[in-house]
């Protein structure tokens, strides 16, 4: 059967239109069907179906799918298919995808348990440094240079044994 519209190509799309009480059958080739029936919903491709499914089930996957950890080389998709992370940095790199996952697994995303004393010391130091720096800014604003020098020395002293600062 040839396409009703162009009369050239083979008709592969068979439509039944009902307007009021009149039933009308149309036989078209794919091209003509696309151009004539713009009001018809386009049939989605398998990839589109998959993408929309993923978006429904785990919306973060689509967004995260191109992210790869620069430290261990693991991609977010590899993590989702095997369930294992590659390095500690992944918790930062994949954070956006991990948060909803952790929420599902643990009903929480904030650790409240033990703090290693080493991390504890650093956390305390970090907080102290932040405090001193804000004081320094205030002192400079007030043009209290004596106080500022004092604070600067304290900051140097505190950050001296920490190579990250």
């Amino acid at each position: 059967m040839k396409c009703e519209s162009c009369n050239k190509k083979h008709a592969t799309v068979h439509l039944t239109e009902i307007v009021g009480t009149v039933k009308k059958e149309r036989h078209l080739c794919e091209e003509c069907a696309q151009s004539i029936n713009t009001h018809l919903t386009k049939i989605p491709s398998p990839t589109e179906i998959l993408t929309s499914l993923i978006n429904q089930v785990a919306p973060e996957i689509n967004e995260m799918s191109k992210i790869v950890c620069p430290v261990c080389g693991l991609s977010y998709l590899e993590f989702r298919s095997h369930g294992r992370l590659g390095c500690a940095m992944d918790y930062t790199i994949f954070r956006k995808g991990l948060i909803p996952l952790l929420e599902k697994m643990h009903s929480s995303t904030q650790h409240v348990g033990k703090v290693p004393s080493r991390a504890g010391k650093e956390l305390i130091k970090k907080n102290e440094l932040m405090q001193l720096r804000s004081e320094l800014n205030k002192a400079v604003e007030k043009e209290d240079y004596e106080r500022a020098a004092e604070l600067r020395d304290k900051i140097y002293e505190l950050s001296g044994d920490n190579d990250e600062d």
Binding site: G83, R84, L85, Y91, L101, L102, T109, H111, P116
Partner: peptide, 19 residues
């Protein structure tokens, strides 16, 4: 140890992370 103040002790599988 690999540790973060947000997620606690960092583990290979996220089902173990935290404590």
């Amino acid at each position: 140890y690999a540790y973060s103040s947000r997620f606690g002790y960092l583990t290979a599988c996220p089902t173990n992370v935290g404590t």
